[in-house]
Nucleic acid binder design. Structure first.
Length: 429
RNA sequence: GCCGUCGUAGCUCAGCCUGGUAGAGCAUCCGCCUGUUAAGCGGAGGGUCAACGGUUCAAACCCGUUCGACGGCGCCA
């Protein structure tokens, strides 16, 4: 048994091979059936001629519609008329499962593809995206492994509603209420005291009613936290990690990237260091472009797009005003209006993909900020404890995996970066 | 939470402005076709026009309400 990709080779020409998979396209013209076969590795045309196979096999080949599962045996031939340049001339056509008229046809709407997601994930687009995603993840894990980070497994169900409780999903937890995690950060911070450098890959849940091409209610969150790490070094980790992810995808998935209209060469060229732009400079740049922003304005979708749409390499925006960011970030001693933090923006207008910062170590400062925000101190008791027993400077960040996939695969919407997107309007299938 | 667009055959849409009793292509089924590229030719079946209410002799079409979907903003990764 060969994969389709293996069969598509000059070495196989003249040999009898067996392939199996699903019918991707099929056309019949009386005495000959053209069945294009799909498997994980690609597609290949097979021709089934009357007389070259048994009568039953020929009947089955005529009947087998799109997505029927089959095994085909035949001789590999080079043929200019075949898409891809090679075809298999069948001597056997064995059907495992006939397919009813496949409901996804040439004409598709967004709604249909979401309703039939369990079938649409078989598409070549979805297959390519899934492979690229796996490659990006492998690149990330390799980098973490090479740099002695320990992968840890923080909880998904959490007990207190830390950080803007409105954005959390509630779950019934025995006879109490618990919440689905929106970030593993606090738990990762607690683990650096023993493991020094840690990371985790977990689903994160946000109950924000976001209706945008950049938001999911459930997404895969790659987070890292390291002791003794200052904000500038935190950015170095990000640019190295992302480079490792991109380069691994280029190495493992050049065909899938090209299929998604992403030239692998543009990713190959991305290397550290990424540009660091101060928040202040970002505001000035945007003002020069004619946008109505000033100190204290947040960078929304429009602003991020304006900053990055002509770039090919990600960029950091650093040192945001404190009022725009959460309480746990470290004050910037060079400008105490700001934090030692960074947002990493993807190029080509795709927007924020990573948010990170050095963490505050002064409990008094954090208590003050929490009080200002009207938060209940009780909820943060264990977190504040961490600073009481051998506090160290440390930093970390969170990366939205689907955001990177959206950029790398040039997707119009983040929902296509995950097999079963969870959005405000959809939990089915 | 806010702004906008759209619900007609299994799918993609036309018809709505200007009311008169339902159309096309694809898919399905039946024929024909030995080099097709989501082929071609002939035939058949397939519709509570999202739901409810109103106006009218008459509503897919005009008006209202509800529901659903999608596009965008905000929030974030």
């Amino acid at each position: 048994m060969l994969s389709v990709k293996q069969a598509l080779s000059k070495d196989q020409v003249g040999k009898i091979v067996q392939v199996r998979g699903w019918i991707y396209r099929t056309r019949s013209s009386g005495g000959i059936v053209f069945a294009v076969l799909r498997d994980v590795s690609g597609i290949i045309q097979t021709t089934v001629k009357k007389g070259a196979v048994s009568e039953k096999d020929f009947d089955d080949a005529q009947k087998a519609g799109i997505e029927s599962s089959v095994m085909i045996e035949g001789e590999v031939a080079e043929d200019k008329r075949a898409p891809g340049g090679y075809e298999i001339r069948a001597t056997k056509f064995q059907v495992y499962g006939f397919s009813d008229g496949f409901p996804i046809t040439e004409y598709q709407s967004t709604e249909l593809l979401l309703d039939l997601r369990h079938l649409w994930i078989r598409s070549r687009e979805q297959t390519a995206v899934a492979k690229v995603k796996a490659s990006l993840l492998r690149g990330a894990r390799e980098w973490f492994h090479d740099n002695e980070y320990v992968e840890v497994t923080p909880p998904i169900i959490t007990g207190v509603a830390a950080e803007e409780s409105t954005t959390l999903f509630q779950v019934k937890y025995f006879d109490r209420i618990a919440y689905l995690s929106q970030s593993a950060q606090f738990y990762l911070e607690s683990l650096i005291y023993s493991l020094d450098k840690v990371y985790s890959l977990t689903p994160s849940f946000r109950a924000e009613k976001s209706r945008t091409p950049r938001h999911l209610a459930e997404y895969w969150h790659l987070e890292m936290e390291a002791a003794w790490l200052e904000n500038e070094d935190n950015m170095k980790v990000q640019e190295q990690l992302i480079t490792s992810m991109l380069h691994n995808a280029v190495k493992e998935c050049p065909e899938e990237l090209t299929f998604m209209k992403r030239d692998p060469a543009t990713l190959k060229k991305i290397e550290p260091p990424f540009e660091r732009m101060n928040y202040q400079e970002a505001m000035e740049t945007l003002q020069k472009k004619g946008l109505d922003v000033s100190w204290g304005s947040d960078l929304g979708a429009i602003e991020e797009r304006a900053l990055t749409q002509d770039r090919l390499v990600p960029m950091f925006v650093v040192n945001y005003p404190k009022e725009l960011k959460p309480f746990y970030m470290k004050e910037n001693p060079e400008d105490t209006r700001t934090y030692k933090n960074s947002d990493l923006l993807a190029p080509e207008g795709y927007g924020e993909i990573v948010g990170g910062s050095e963490r505050e170590t002064d409990n008094e400062l954090m208590l003050e900020r929490l009080r200002d925000k009207g938060e209940s101190i009780e909820n943060y008791k264990w977190y504040l404890d961490l600073r009481k027993y051998g506090s160290v400077p440390h930093s970390g960040f969170g990366l939205g995996l689907e955001r990177i996939v959206t950029w790398v695969c040039k997707l119009d919407h983040i929902r296509d970066s995950i097999p079963y997107p969870r959005t405000v309007a959809r939990v089915y299938p």
